[in-house]
Design a protein around this nucleic acid. Sequence first.
RNA 1: AGCGGGGUAGGCCAGCCAGGUAGGCCGCGGGGCUCAUAACCCCGAGGUCCCCGGUUCAAAUCCGGGCCCCGCUACCA
Length: 570
Amino acid sequence: MAKYVIGSAWPYVQSVPHLGNMIGSVLSADVYARYLRSKGHDVVFVSGSDMHGTPIEVEALALGVDPADYARRMHEIVSELFKRWNISFDLYTNTHSDTHIKFTQEFFMKIYENKYIFTREDEMPYCPRDKIFLPDRFIIGVCPYCGYERARGDQCERCGRLLEPRLLKSPRCAICGATPEWRKTTHWYLDLRKLEEPVRKYVESNKYLPQNAREMSLGILREGLRPRAVTRDNKWGIPAPFPGAEGKTIYVWFEAVLGYISAVKEYYERRGQPEKWKEYWLDPETKVVFFVGKDNIPFHVIILPALILANGGGYTMPTTTASTEYLNYEGDKFSKSRRWGIWIDEALRLLPVDYWRFLLVYMRPENRDVDFTWAAALDVINKVLNDDVGNFFHRVLSFIKSRAGGAVPRPGPQASEDEAFIKRVLSLVESAEAHYEAVELREALMDGVEITREGNRYLNARAPWQLVKERPEEAGTVLYNAYWAVKAAAVVLYPVMPSSIEELWRMMGLGGPITWQEARRAPEPGAQLGDVRPLFKKVSQEEYKAMMQELEKMRNERWSKKYPWEQVVL
RNA sequence: AGCGGGGUAGGCCAGCCAGGUAGGCCGCGGGGCUCAUAACCCCGAGGUCCCCGGUUCAAAUCCGGGCCCCGCUACCA
């Protein structure tokens, strides 16, 4: 048994996450955490809403509401949605919690005392009307290269050139249109140059990192780490604790990643064990695993380890960051502004949650970007989830129910093909285990599916519906073996579809917890089956059309609402 | 521009790191079974493995060059 801290990237609560966010972080982390628990490991699974930062501040300003209020409302909604997605967080908190704020301030003071922080005065664009400093992308002007009139300060969307706000002609504030002025302001920088070597050593010696995380991180290190500003002139954020930094806040990216530590602390505080978090975060034996999309790699593989090193407090270095590529939607990136994609609230209105969980893990972009298309999704539901998996479960259980007395038969002598079948099933369980360990969730799921395919082949070859007439004892053996395969597949697929598999477990007449050992353990003959029904069903073309109409209707309604929290469908 | 990923049957992909009869799923054609959700099983057709060159007895796999697609580039969270 090992100790694990599992973290999924902290969703930014400006809006509800979409399916791509879900498979990249939260859902993948949940599947992995559930797998680890089924193996009996000691797991703390945490995440929370990222509440601070300019986008929320600006959005709140535009809507005329308090940013804290905005973030809190969205946080509550997202928390509720994750519950409905059956995410087994031990704690889903947010970056505005007292514990997190205090922890962050102390953590950065320690870094400051360790001399990794220096100050520098910069000139930054400032909107005199909104009275805020503007991040690059909140300045709009004419592109100096192509003349595009609505180029942003970081990049021109028409010609793709990287820009700086000073290059823009006739710059104006993206919020109110006023002309920004340049104001001097002091910022506190983290001196990443001093951390480059230890971070490089960390990355190079980390044998668990997925290839994309390794390549991207080494690429960044090759270019050399540069100091980065830790402070911002935002109002909405965690007050910077440094002497003389009154009125400044900590840049969201530098505090949100500390949430993985502070959330474990908060979890045990709430349980009345305020010191227990140290058994995780201060024990180098603890395995710390993060789940993020590829855009998040630098902050988890470079920045957080650098912060931990700079702090020097002996916090456990992350074991790995399980990073995915992107899930696209019907050929294009998910885009909130273009309303392109499916959001996790809508999704629950369209299909049962386990269908989504299965679909997303099946399509998990482990090696490259993957395109979510409805055509492919229906195919997976109808051919794989329903026909291969669901039908095999039902085929075996309903047969035992109707032709074998409704209880798990006692097996007789095993013929060589029976033995070969069990061996094959157990080797697939082993393969699934290896894949789960390597965080190859899609492959683990495929092993589970393969067990049911093998099961179907086995039944066709042994034809127990014939045997039951002439050699009932042999039929019992075959059904016993098939039942074992159902159990093995159930255990392998349990982390992906917890509620469906729990129901299956009851149908199988099994009472105990769904643990990994159950996959290998021979079933007990005589166990009475419960009521048996098909777990899944197909989605017909008509139902699909109805679904699309429902989606359309939903969207017309929600997007006519003013406030983001009113736009959510619950 | 730099960095990263990719180009394999009608579709989606595995194989490439550790060269040696080109695999899987879907779709298509044929057959079987009838326990099961018109499900399941078997057989078959179908491929210039992006292009050019090199190394090798042998290259989808290694090396060089080229073409095309996609993502990232960190005050965008």
